[in-house]
């Protein structure tokens, strides 16, 4: 473990400037994932820039009717916030489906977006891993890959993004606000994380030195139909084998808008755009949901041990859409 310096950033500009001038610097807030990674030598930063005391802890309504979540809002505060519970119930449920109460109390919204895969091959330096070090190989492709990706993976990486929150944010069309030395910019959540391609070491499209400052939730008139369904190996405190976030806007007997996002299946939260498009203008019924599920998984490429995820994903989509069609709630 390389020694690192620890500094408390006194402003966003200060934090960004430190991380821009030192490419080996890393931001730390809740530390619930980063500290674990440091202990097992996955990250060897030159300095940790502590951003946890900065003023990004508010949840506020913007004048466009969006809800702006400060990057340092804890997962617990986000899930319990009255506006989030009322207007984005699927987000609240997704956050509560993740981790444990103790971890959620520490973990921040920005940190949740930045958490890295729990692929066991990534997690132990005894194994080679393209995500840790380019061109060293991916033992997961030929090893035990029951929990790995079925969509959008590459030969160099079959890891999955572990976040529940991000799946709900993808379905909500959330936007990530980031700040770098060039100033602020906004990245749609579904473009925030990357597919692995030949650069699995990069999880996100953040530029060096950029800091997440907020996540913006646009108004969603049909958010009450939101559903977050997480299927896993134990009833709590386990990463998703497959998770689904859905919402439906139904006008008359026709679907006007559909949102379908998947977790546990890809290197990023996976929006099933083609399935959504298929549903528009269709009746909200079982057979259309079945077809939408087929479309969502038509490009799936399972590995030796995770073929079940294809069928499980289809069923989860069908169920979540059916519950959304009935007005949302627990699935």
């Amino acid at each position: 473990m390389k020694n690192f310096t620890y500094v408390r950033a006194n402003s966003i500009e200060d934090a960004v400037s430190r991380a821009t001038s030192d490419r080996q610097a890393m931001f730390i807030a809740g530390g619930t994932n980063l500290v674990d990674r440091l202990k097992v030598f996955l990250d060897e930063p030159s300095q940790l820039v502590d951003v946890s005391r900065l003023e990004m802890k508010q949840i506020e309504r913007t004048n466009t009717g969006s809800l702006k979540i400060g990057a340092l809002v804890t997962n617990t505060a986000l899930a319990n916030h009255i506006e989030v519970r009322r207007n984005y119930p699927l987000l609240s449920r997704a956050v509560l489906a993740g981790a444990s109460q103790q971890i959620r109390n520490m973990a921040t919204v920005g940190g949740n977006l930045m958490q890295r895969t729990r692929c066991p091959y990534y997690y132990d330096t005894a194994f080679p891993c393209n995500k840790r070090q380019q061109n060293t190989g991916c033992p997961a492709t030929t090893g035990m890959n029951r929990t790995h990706a079925i969509l959008g993976a590459s030969e160099s990486c079959v890891a999955t993004n572990p976040s529940d929150m991000s799946v709900a944010l993808a379905a909500i069309d959330a936007v990530v606000e980031v700040e770098g030395v060039q100033g602020k910019r906004e990245i749609p959540l579904i473009d925030f994380h990357r597919l692995p391609g030949n650069n699995p070491e990069r999880d996100t499209n953040l530029e060096p030195g950029e800091l997440i400052t907020a996540v913006i939730l646009p108004p969603l008139s049909f958010s009450q139909s939101g559903v977050y369904l997480k299927l896993r190996d134990r009833a709590s405190y386990a990463f998703a084998l497959v998770s689904v976030a859905t919402a439906l806007e139904v006008a008359g007997d026709k679907i006007k808008t559909a949102r379908v996002a998947l977790g546990g299946v890809a290197h990023k939260p996976w929006r099933a755009m083609e399935a959504e498009e298929f549903l528009i203008g269709k009746a909200a019924n079982k057979s259309n949901f079945e077809q939408a599920a087929e479309i969502a998984l038509q490009d799936a490429q399972p590995l030796a041990h995770n073929g079940f995820k294809v069928e499980l994903s289809k069923r989860a989509i069908r169920r979540a859409l059916a519950v959304s069609a009935q007005g949302g709630g627990l699935a």
């Binding site: 729990r118 066991p120 091959y121 997690y123 033992p139 709590s236 386990a238 990463f239």
Partner: peptide, 25 residues
């Protein structure tokens, strides 16, 4: 506890990845 078929190394590495019951189970 699954073992990697090539190296024989367990691919569970902590109490989050080696599952035993939580209260909810």
């Amino acid at each position: 506890c699954h073992l990697d078929p090539t190296t024989g190394y367990p691919v569970v590495y902590d109490l989050a990845t080696y599952h035993f019951p939580a209260h909810a189970d």
